[in-house]
Write a protein that binds this DNA or RNA. Sequence first.
DNA 1: TTAGCTGTACTATTTTAATTAATACAGTTA
DNA 2: TAACTGTATTAATTAAAATAGTACAGCTAA
Lengths: 126, 126
Amino acid sequence: MFDIDVKSRVPIYEQITENVKRLIIQGVLLPEEKLPSVRSLAQELTINPNTIQKAYRELEREGYVISRPGKGSFVNDMTETMNREHIKTLTEEVERLIKELVFLDVPGESLKTIIDKAEQEKEGHE
Amino acid sequence: MFDIDVKSRVPIYEQITENVKRLIIQGVLLPEEKLPSVRSLAQELTINPNTIQKAYRELEREGYVISRPGKGSFVNDMTETMNREHIKTLTEEVERLIKELVFLDVPGESLKTIIDKAEQEKEGHE
DNA sequence: TTAGCTGTACTATTTTAATTAATACAGTTA
DNA sequence: TAACTGTATTAATTAAAATAGTACAGCTAA
């Protein structure tokens, strides 16, 4: 399926999430397709099953995969998910920046103005 | 000057940067004012001088302080100017991100909540 | 039902990174 | 020169992250 480098500086579970993400994004793995079980993939890569599970859990948290106890782990239908993840990333960034601006005594009202302006601008286009 | 909690979960050097930042922002420490030397503050807090130095270096990196080898560490009088420029940069970033989030149909209200939360959080600290 | 799959939870171990400390060096000032 | 100042380098300690061991519970097919 793919190879990992146990000697690499980047954690094994992260190499796995990256590879699976890549395969999903490239369309090699299709929605509802079953992923290898934690144990079989662990055997194939000669690492511990729990490491696979950690990777799968992370992939599930990010919406790439859905795990069904007793049945297996499956590729999730993305289109929606990608947007959701993108929105999450953007929101986290905004949170960080706003926190800092508020800390620097920028009044919340002036920040809210930015939001209003963005909304008005959008309405104009639809 | 201030106290630290060696038993706290937050690192000592971070407690120091936070406290010094606070004192500068509150105007207790004024521009060009000399901060305690790494050794004297280390003695006062009964911790290692290098820990103070790490804090001071971080404060310098963020523009709060300027260190003059052989002379001492001083409150940077550029803070206002730097802040204003910093605020400008941050605001531009926020504008860009908010625009994109609004475009992705994230309701403005949920973004305003982020602002409110940041303000509440800040009030808690003062 | 049972045998053999599946994912999961919990704990312990190992490994890695962050934090703090020890020590020596170099600039400044009186 | 003596007593300050910040700095660099390295070592020791501490905390966190990553991985592994083991046991449990759900699903499915013979």
